[in-house]
Amino acid sequence: MAVATHDNAHADPTAHAWERVRINRLGLWLFLFSDAGLFALFAASRFYLSGTARDPHLNQALGLAITSLLLLSSLTAYRAETAFVHGNTARGRAMLLATIVMGLMFAGGVAFEWATAEFPVAELYGTAFYSMTGMHAFHVITGILFLAVVWARSGDGHFSGGPKVWPITATVMYWHFVDVVWVFFYPTLYLLK
């Protein structure tokens, strides 16, 4: 009852929905910013403990491969969101699926690397490497779960048009955030010397 008579600007349901999106967007940005702080502290700890030193046994080819894969998945995520914004559900769903698949491949790549890496977790470089890639992989997996949920729900035109695209946008933003973290982690872990 009280909600129904919510103030006049809200009488227009679309305007109200856009206002919700604005609010949600700021909340998501703040959350991502906060989460980035956690990653930054781990990266800072890596430099504090061992400077830029890197273990020579790193599998560089694999590193470059999974990095490219994650970058490419950011593109498909972008394409998915753009498609949904323009009401192109079919392409949006295909792109979401492509993102999920590449995310899974990235996670598989990290798992493979863990299984074959030749440096122990107890060494300083191993400490940084396993904890940082592990935390990042955890975010990748949660991102995949979110993507899977919106993909499964997107069939019936649920997310088509204007403010209704928000759940897709939010998930895709989270995915881009995971990529941004890797943009910094990749040189930090693989390329410095």
Partner: peptide
């Protein structure tokens, strides 16, 4: 559709 393909092109360029 034209709006979408323009936006999609931005994506490719950035990538």
């Amino acid at each position: 559709a034209a709006g979408e393909s323009a936006d999609q092109r931005t994506g490719f360029t950035v990538f």
